[in-house]
Amino acid sequence: MGFIRFSGVDFHYGPAGSSAVSILKGLELELAQGEFYVLLGPSGCGKTTALNLLAGFERPSAGTIVMEGHAIGEPGMDRVVIFQGDDSLYPWLTAQENVEFPLRMTGVGAAERRRRAATWLSRVGLANHGQKFPHQLSGGMKQRIQIARALVCDAPVLLMDEPFGALDAQTRTILQDELVSICNGSGATVLFITHDIAEAIILADRIGVMRAGPGSAVKDEFALDLPRPRNRGSVEFAAAYDRIQRVLGEEVRKVVTREAAA
């Protein structure tokens, strides 16, 4: 029995019927406790929708999503989200205050709040930038604030929606490695969305490759039991990359062909 379980989940925009735009159709997904699960798929396939459903931002049109035996309800601190891009940070708050935000909302005292936020800021390498505002920091640093803000909650589940998608390749690699060392042994269950195969292999315990939409679902799953930290140049890495690429490539080609025809 999975810790988190999607059973027969459909999601479509608009009223049911011929005009509805089907995003997900019959999605089955199961995450074990403490597992790092990466959803990989062509753009527009509905991976972010799957994450939004688990976060509670959207409701499934059909099917159920259950966590520890309870149906998913409103968004909450048991499933914290690291958003794509930096539109979720509060520009009028400093880095430190952004990280304190969840603690402030839950009534943690000022001193305790400052201490815990400072600890996480230094763990993500921003110890000296706490008093800066987001617009004074680089894209990579802003995503570090988001990571600190999510992890300060000690949440059992982390939801990451292409958090490094907008970063340059070097910064992205560094943050991937840092995320591995932060998550290792934290016990948190992670759902991570990406379209980058290398990123998936560096991070995942298990990878689910999604079909091209509309009406997407998981097409194939890959378990990766390589030891961490993983080496991007290793033979095992290349083999995994090749296996996944064959499955994902087929779906990406479908999207490209359809776009060319349209």
Partner: peptide
Amino acid sequence: RDRMRAARVFGAGPWRAFWHVRLPATV
């Protein structure tokens, strides 16, 4: 959207989301 969603995730109800996110954004 994301700022309001983040507020909900990080423990703010509708009233606090308005006070701590919508209001400062409207200043």
